[in-house]
Amino acid sequence: MKNESRQSIILGDVEITRVIEWAGPLGPARNLVPGAGAEVWKENEDWLSPDHWEADSDRAVVALQTWVLRSAGKTVLVDTGVGNGRERPGSPHFHHRQGDFLGELARAGVRPEDVDIVVNTHVHGDHVGWNTVAADGGWVPTFPNAQYLVPAADDHHFGPGNAYGRGLREDDRLIYEDSIAPVHHAGQAVLWDGAHRIDEHLTLESAPGHTPGSAVLRLTSGTDRAVFVGDLLHSPVQILEPACNSCFCLDAGQAAASRRRILERAADEGELLVPAHFGGTGAVEVRRQGQNFALGEWAGYVEVG
């Protein structure tokens, strides 16, 4: 896949810059999307490989990335990746990770103090990690002037009132304690439910299933449309097979229903689909194909930095 860490596109009056924390082959494709059989990957190898699938090893190729939106005079970050120095015993790829994400942000022209709004599409470790940085033996918000928009349902589900996701994974407690709780303590967390308008171009909407509060961010500016869908899709094969969930979806039925609803709207309204983890250019148009969907054009970027 393309390894450029900063890429930019303009939609209406909104500039979108893609900042990649890490990209490459992750785990077995069938583990990531268990319902998508080997034939789906093989039949689409000509375009899945190499940006989305490493055929020889049968590993899915993904990206950990943040989308920087400059909209209505504000700088908005959509998801904040894994972060550095985290205790993630249940996630070997994220455990004690060290990277230069803040350097990549700086090279894209974004200093921590410049960020006005942080959107966490959901509370998973690879979406909230750079919410905070280590300081004085603890954790403090990375972006001191930002509001952090956190889905209320996820804040409850993964928070102490629900025993940190009912205690099913130790990582859930660690994620909340090092990446969400410090934002609350600093008075920078804004919980929302249902829908939340950020400005005249950007609106958050609930799309539950992957997590109880998982959300999408809709962009409308002039005639241009986009939808940032977080983890509703982990791989483009889920556009072809929308009933297939990732292995991380907590409510399979709800996740599949949210995915189909978002894909239908993207196809009908000409929204550029921007998932959290797609490799390649990371964003694609969607077309209806009978009762199903097909991929349209991939996003075209201007390299920056």
Rank of each mutant, 00 (worst) to 15 (best):
S8P: 05
I16W: 05
G27E: 15
A29S: 15
R30H: 11
R30Y: 06
A36T: 14
W41V: 09
E45S: 10
L48I: 10
E54T: 00
E54M: 03
Q65T: 11
T66P: 06
R70H: 02
G73E: 00
D79S: 14
V82G: 01
R86I: 03
R97P: 03
D100L: 00
L105T: 10
R107D: 08
E113H: 11
D114S: 12
V115N: 01
D116A: 06
G125V: 00
G138M: 10
T142V: 03
F143A: 10
F143K: 10
N145H: 14
Q147F: 10
Y148R: 01
L149I: 01
V150D: 02
D154P: 03
Y164F: 15
R166L: 10
R166E: 14
L174I: 02
D178V: 08
D178C: 14
S179E: 15
L191D: 09
A195R: 09
D199M: 01
L204Y: 12
L204F: 12
H210A: 05
G213W: 02
V216E: 04
L219D: 06
T220P: 02
G222C: 09
R225F: 11
F228A: 03
V229Y: 04
H234Y: 15
I239A: 08
R259Y: 12
R261L: 09
R265F: 07
H277K: 10
G279R: 00
G279W: 07
V284L: 11
L295V: 15
L295H: 07
G300E: 09
E303P: 07
E303G: 07
